[in-house]
Design a protein around this nucleic acid. Structure first.
Lengths: 251, 251
DNA sequence: TTGCTCCTCACGTCACGTGAGGTGGC
DNA sequence: TTGCTCCTCACGTCACGTGAGGTGGC
């Protein structure tokens, strides 16, 4: 019979294995660690077998194996019930997700943009009104996370004084003012505040019903964010652009 | 007064924002999303303001901001209560952790090693007995995650037939057999089955009491894993090596 | 009447962490 | 007696997911 001169308490075992007493107790609760003998006062007396088992479990946890995939076999010890293949794929996917997050955070910090700025607009966001930012949020999302660069380019190309003029246009702006602003916006290039972008970037990004819902939502959002005069200007810009396109084609 | 011709149900809102109805309800529960008006039948009627708010929250969740750090201000919208600096550091640390995990998984798969093999032993583990693997587990952990290469080198240098001879040594092996095996092991190079490694790799890796506990644990583990004959051989190897060292020094 | 969508609780998940309340040896 | 360590429940965490049980319009 072996001597049993040395035994470890829960804390000692946890320290030796570089983990916590709560983790040890948790592994007992889910059956990954056998109950050790008790001292007269009820204290647990862990031995080498428990330390080895605990180290095996901890190592598997370290590489990301879910505890639910572990079984204990009397002779084989701890057995993993899943494929390392799948585990590696999950870890890989998670790394990719976090890499994107880190890159986005860095861009947001670098561009001094609001924390919720969508990807691709970090350097532009600080120049936008809250309303325009809200529209960008909606557009990028309704675009299905698709090509966001064309929208960013249009935004970057918009002259600041023109953006300011549009943003501050009163709901009761005169016919002349509206017409003038519309002409300036047509001359300045393509209009980004338009559901047109949705049609171009994802002609059929999802199911037809999803597309329809997205376009209807876009129209609703424009109607909510801008006042009647601004909406009128946007209408004129859109039909004006269409008119220009026609002229170009017939030329 | 604005027309209210269009409103979205919970599912429609969730679909537009690319999330789930449960997430939307959760944001209501923790006060991140205002309750919308209800239709006569009790159905929720979400509007543009809710969509914008939801998109802001989702974007912040995407980059990893904990929901507990979000507050809603009537005019400023969603406000982040933490530093992006800290967030970036946390994400960075998590990426590093997962990278190590991925790299370890790849090594384990490549070396066809058991899933719980400690880092650095992936290519050696398949040649070890369960008992030797258990010892490696304990040693790497008690070494405090320190320089594991010297141990791996000693293991790699051990001739397979010698390892086999030691592993299969019966508890009642004769004096002659034990002496012979000890000589062969001394000749083969430094002995890895020894608490000596602990002393060399971390002369003071933690507090003195932690060091003492680690060495005592190591001794206990050896006594549990190997039989009396094997332990006797290990003793002889250790004192023999000391003897050799002495001779070397006096020469 | 059947299916479909919506609603509101209440409880589950995952790997532990955090007290609460009590014991035992110095 | 005070401090310290150990013990066992029971409940908390985080961001939702999952039924259960009921309603309303076609």
């Amino acid at each position: 019979m072996k001597d049993k001169t040395v035994a470890w308490s829960t804390r000692e075992l946890a320290d030796l294995a570089g983990t916590t007493v709560n983790a040890v107790r948790h592994y007992h609760a889910i059956g990954l660690l056998d109950s050790p003998e008790r001292c007269v006062n009820g204290y647990k007396q862990y031995r080498v077998q428990h330390l080895v088992r605990l180290l095996q479990v901890r190592r598997l946890v370290e590489i990301g194996v879910p505890l639910a995939q572990l079984r204990v076999d009397e002779k084989a010890g701890v057995v993993v019930m899943g494929e390392l293949n799948d585990l590696e794929a999950r870890v890989e996917a998670e790394i990719e997700r976090l890499r994107r997050a880190r890159s986005d955070i860095a861009s947001i910090r670098h561009g001094r943009a609001p924390a919720d700025t969508p990807r691709g607009f970090e350097s532009l966001a600080s120049n936008l009104s809250e309303i325009d930012r809200a529209l960008v949020h909606v557009m990028t999302r309704l675009g299905g996370g698709g090509p966001v660069e064309s929208l960013a380019r249009m935004l970057a190309a918009e002259p600041p004084e023109l953006r300011e003029a549009f943003s501050s246009l009163g709901a009761d702006a005169s016919e002349g003012l509206r017409g003038h602003l519309a002409s300036r916006m047509i001359a300045a290039g393509p209009n980004w505040r338009s559901a047109e972008w949705l049609r171009s970037t994802h002609p059929s990004g999802g199911t037809p019903s999803r597309d329809r819902a997205a376009r209807r939502a876009m129209t609703e959002v424009l109607r909510e964010l801008y006042n009647p005069a601004q909406l009128d200007v946007l209408d004129r810009v859109e039909s004006g652009e269409a008119h220009e396109l026609e002229e170009e084609l017939s030329a």
